[in-house]
Design a protein around this nucleic acid. Structure first.
Length: 943
RNA sequence: GCCCAGUUGGCGGAAUUGGUAGACGCGCUGGUCUCAAACACCAGUAGGAAACUGUGCCGGUUCGACUCCGGCACUGGGUACCA
């Protein structure tokens, strides 16, 4: 009887669920291990073959750790608030909650079929009120906290009020009076400038099509990450989180983390720390000053103009009467440019002269003040001292407008380009002349500080995170407004439930959907905040909830947190490197500041699995003749391209276009058969429009059986529903089994590498499974002997154990599958069916192919699950060789092998080599210059 | 532009971290079994007739380089006027 994976896999999945095999206890004598996956957003498309890649890896590791005697927490849940579900709700009117439930059910079914060892009793869903109650609770803590720079941590807002009361802190230049003199509104406004969750007028990324603001990392190249809609800058009153308070700690704590360098580097770049100096230029004939930020104070004598951001507050003040018209026009132009426009013509230089001047602090010279949109309002002071000689952007601006370029650092050729390198001697720079750049920076700062012109300052690129979304399907922000003053709900009043609305669209007046909720008022009278939290809110702390998923009194009990600590292994996609991973680190540090967590980082080790790419297939079409009234759409096979191709002009005759063919309609040779046309149109109605047209001609080809087909063009791209290239794991599980899928996904290559999905090699893995099964069977009957194993058999087993342990601990799952194959090949060769070998083998393969392992374990006579067996240790004694076939090389080129006992010393090996016939032959009578012998490795003879 | 990762047979990929390049698997070729196919099994498979040549390209260090160093090219990902 061959291995019946369908029956076996079902049987054990049932067993695990019934016996709660993977239930993790919050108390145990065993050491703990927390293996976490980034939880999925349950979309309507279901799980595709890319999702399980990381899940399989972490599952193997979790199962391995159980076998090694650890108490393992390996949970799974759903990031179930989000835009896609809401867009679907808008289109169909179906409540997002229903869509979410359906999608989750489908995900769960798919996950179960792969045989993961999740403790499902701990499942979390971010859209469940039981869960988002605590997301809201954390928001309230953020609102009630400020960041004390003296203690370098978050503290309750009361300690700030105290400082105001005793006058240690002033209430701000424009307020002047003491805390007690401020009215309630003024006090509220003042505190909002310090709270970690705060309301303010900020420049936000507004996406009109989505009807909401977006965080910086949700905007890619000027369009929204989801949907690809244009984004513009807009000043809006918004909730934000003061992540910038943690910028320095987020940066410095990266050091101790076992994360990949590329992720750490991405975070460093995103945080963007830059150290420099800020100092003031006095405006001519005015008491006002313009403050600039620079990292190159050494180039102070190279300043030939000042550039302000169009939004800079002094623009109006400094502009002269003659210039007022052009300046106003320019500011309007800059404001109305969308983000994408601005980004797409970065090289286009725009700006205007204000007519105003500032005075150089050292030379007293007049310096013109310009406005340019290459200066960002949100960074530094929104003003730069332009040093065209030594800054590329300033140089371009100066060249474009014909402004002076002064050389102050020797070493470049300023007629061609600016010289930005921090290398060379200062010139034309008064007291800095002759100094190296490094020393000049020091001296310049010293003198600027001495003269009281400015001081050293650190800037971050990181912006505070906009936290409100003008959308429905998210956590309501637990805030109400009393006389226009924002106040948070009492903890006892949580959760603030998401109200029902008649439509999931903004109101006629442009208010967010929550404004549609009728009778939704705090205590029946105060307006609630009607924006909701962003998608990343719930995922910023979910790893904590798994520790104690059903706790009604707190987000997770102290005992649970103290036992589980932070995540030992976190696996997920690299696309979350600057979004999710920064926020979850931020929240962890914040909760640590409040004394609620005993650790400051969420995850000790992080691995990014590579993306599994899809292989898209395309119909290719040539539009025959664009001049005649009837255009013929000729669909051709891609290997017919040359017939329609004009090699001289490098173009197709007529217009060439392509469109996706759903991959499941093609055979393994990328052929689409005419007989499937009706089915294609049936499943994908959009093809009807294209194919049904009368002007549509298909150049079918014929295979050897005379059947009509088209050869499709293939390309590798991201797997997505819209590209018709999604492959779900379901078919593979149905045809080859879950263990096969698990092994195959690991066998594809290193976990971190991106690779296109292809099932071409899967038969090798499925053969391996059958071969392994056959070791334990003879003619279909279970047949394992108790005879003692031979030396060779023991060597095969122990060699394999050693390699597998090494591979797992280095997350090299692809090579461990190879090693299992080698092991099974050797044991088959040895005709081994000894229990002494096969029983340990069934344990070490259990993390990879758990269903198969359980079945073999059961057949070996065990009554409990293999999950908690003991992982065998390898014994070196079985691995010792007594001889080694030394490769003998001449000048580094390997020529032949020579078997010698390992007991021989270096000198003896040398002698043995010189006596060897083949060596003599290669030496041709010459004597060698040198012989290099590396014990157990190589013999190299230099001639 | 900048940052990161990568480049090895027809293909996915190995190489104990400086010591036999191409493990393992796919594919392909030939064979056994079969009326035939599937499955399974056996043999071969970097290129070259060979000497030899071969890990993206050029150079270096070394007895010895896929591995280390310098320079370059290409591919993929991230980021974008951050002063």
């Amino acid at each position: 009887m061959e291995y019946n994976f369908r029956e076996v896999e079902k049987k054990w999945q049932h067993y695990w669920a019934k016996k709660k095999t993977f239930k993790a206890e919050n108390k145990s004598n065993k050491p703990k291990y927390y293996a976490l996956d980034m939880f999925p957003y349950p979309s309507g498309a279901g799980l595709h073959v890319g999702h399980p890649l990381g899940y399989i890896a972490s599952d193997i590791f979790a199962r391995y750790k159980r076998l090694k005697g650890f108490n393992v927490l390996h949970p799974m849940g759903y990031d179930s608030f989000g835009l896609a579900t809401e867009q679907y709700a808008i289109q169909t009117g179906q409540h997002p909650e229903i869509t979410t439930k359906t999608n989750i059910a489908r995900y769960r079914e798919q996950l179960d079929k792969i045989g993961f060892s999740f403790d499902w009793d701990r499942e979390v869903r971010t859209s469940n009120p039981d869960y988002y109650k605590w997301t809201q609770w954390i928001f309230i803590q953020l609102f009630n906290s400020w960041y004390n720079p003296e203690t370098n941590k978050a503290e309750n807002i009361s300690t700030l009020i105290e400082k105001f009361c005793i006058g240690n802190l002033t209430c701000g230049e424009d307020r002047g009076e003491g805390w007690g003199d401020l009215n309630e509104m003024q006090q509220s406004d003042l505190l909002l400038e310090y709270r970690l969750a705060y309301l303010s007028n900020t420049m936000v990324n507004w996406c009109p099509q989505l009807g909401t603001v977006l965080a910086n990392e949700e905007v890619k190249e000027g369009v929204s990450e989801r949907g690809g809609y244009p984004v513009e800058r807009k000043l809006m009153k918004q909730w934000s989180l003061r992540i910038t308070a943690y910028a320095d700690r987020l940066l410095s704590d990266l050091e101790g983390l076992d994360w990949t360098d590329s992720i750490k580097e991405a975070q460093r770049n995103w945080i963007g720390k830059s150290e420099g100096t800020s100092f003031k230029f006095k405006i001519q004939e005015s008491d006002d000053t313009i403050e600039v930020f620079t990292t190159r104070p050494d180039t102070i004598f190279g300043v030939s103009f000042i550039t302000l951001a169009p939004e800079h507050e002094l623009v109006e003040k400094i502009t002269t009467a003659e210039q007022i018209k052009v300046v106003k026009e320019y500011v309007m132009f800059a404001k109305n440019r969308s983000e994408r426009d601005r980004m797409s013509d970065v090289k286009k230089i725009t700006g205007v002269f204000t007519g105003g001047y500032v005075l150089h602090p050292f030379t007293g010279k007049q310096i013109p003040v310009w406005i340019g949109d290459y200066v960002l309002a949100g960074y530094g002071t929104g003003a730069v001292m332009a040093v065209p000689g030594h800054d590329t952007r300033d140089y371009a601006f100066a060249k474009h407008f014909g402004l002076d370029i002064i050389e102050v650092v020797a070493g470049g050729d300023l007629s061609k380009e600016s010289y930005d390198a921090k290398d060379g001697k200062l010139m034309n720079s008064d007291f800095l002349n002759g100094l190296d750049v490094k020393d000049a920076i020091k001296k310049a700062i010293a003198i600027i500080e001495e003269k009281g012109l400015g001081k050293g300052k650190t800037n971050f690129r990181l912006r505070d995170a906009v936290f409100g979304r003008q959308r429905y399907w998210g956590e309501p922000i637990p805030v109400y407004y009393e006389n226009g003053i924002p106040k948070v709900l009492d903890e006892k009043e949580l959760p603030l439930l998401l109200p029902d609305v008649d439509k999931y669209l903004p109101t006629e007046t442009g208010e967010p959907p929550l404004a549609r909720a009728t009778n939704w008022k705090y205590k029946g009278q105060f307006e609630y905040e009607n924006s909701t939290m962003p998608g990343w809110a719930g995922s910023s702390w979910y790893f904590l909830r798994y520790m104690d998923a059903h706790n009604k009194n707190t987000f997770a009990s102290k005992e649970a947190i103290n036992y589980w600590q932070n995540v030992d292994l976190y696996i997920g996609g690299a696309e979350h490197s600057t979004g999710h991973l920064l926020y979850v680190r931020f929240w962890t540090k914040f909760l640590n500041d409040l004394g609620l967590l005993p650790f400051t980082e969420p995850a000790k080790k992080l691995i990014n699995q590579g993306m599994i790419l899809g292989r898209s297939l395309f119909f290719t079409r040539i539009e025959s003749d664009s001049n005649t009234s009837t255009k013929h759409q000729i669909i051709i096979s891609c290997d017919d391209f040359p017939k329609y191709y004009e090699p001289i002009s490098n173009t197709f005759i007529g217009e060439y276009t392509k469109w996706h063919c759903p991959v499941e309609f093609a055979d393994e040779k990328d052929r689409f058969y005419k007989k499937n046309l009706a089915a294609l149109v049936d499943v994908y109605p959009m093809f009807k429009d294209i194919i049904a047209k009368e002007t549509f001609i298909v150049n079918w080809k014929q295979d050897d059986k005379g059947e009509d087909y088209l050869l499709l063009k293939s390309e590798v791209e991201k797997m997505s529903k819209s590209k018709y290239n999604v492959v779900t794991p379901d078919i593979i599980i149905e045809q080859q089994g879950a263990d096969c899928l698990r092994l195959y996904e690991m066998f594809l290559g290193p976990l971190e590498l991106s690779k296109p999905w292809s099932t071409i090699g899967i038969s090798g893995v499925s053969n391996f499974i059958r071969k392994l099964w056959r070791l334990y069977h003879n003619g279909g009957v279970f047949n394992v002997s108790t005879e003692a194993a031979t030396k060779e058999e023991l060597k095969t087993l122990h060699k394999t154990i050693k390699k597998i342990v090494h591979d797992i601990e280095n997350f090299s799952f692809n090579t461990s599958v190879s090693n299992f194959m080698i092991c099974v090949n050797e044991l088959t060769e040895q005709k081994c069916n000894k229990r002494e070998i096969l029983e340990p083998l069934s344990i070490i393969i259990a993390p990879y192919a758990p269903h198969l392992a359980e079945e073999l374990w059961f057949k070996l006579g065990h009554t409990d699950s293999v999950t908690y067996a003991q992982f065998p240790a390898h014994k070196e004694e079985y691995l010792v060789n007594d001889a080694f076939a030394y490769p003998v090389s001449f000048n580094g080129k390997t020529r032949f092998k020579m078997e010698l006992p390992l007991t021989l010393g270096i000198k003896e090996i040398e002698h043995a080599a010189m006596d060897f016939e083949e060596v003599k032959k290669f030496l041709e009578g010459k004597s060698p210059k040198k012989i290099i012998v590396v014990h157990n490795k190589i013999i190299n003879i230099v001639v």
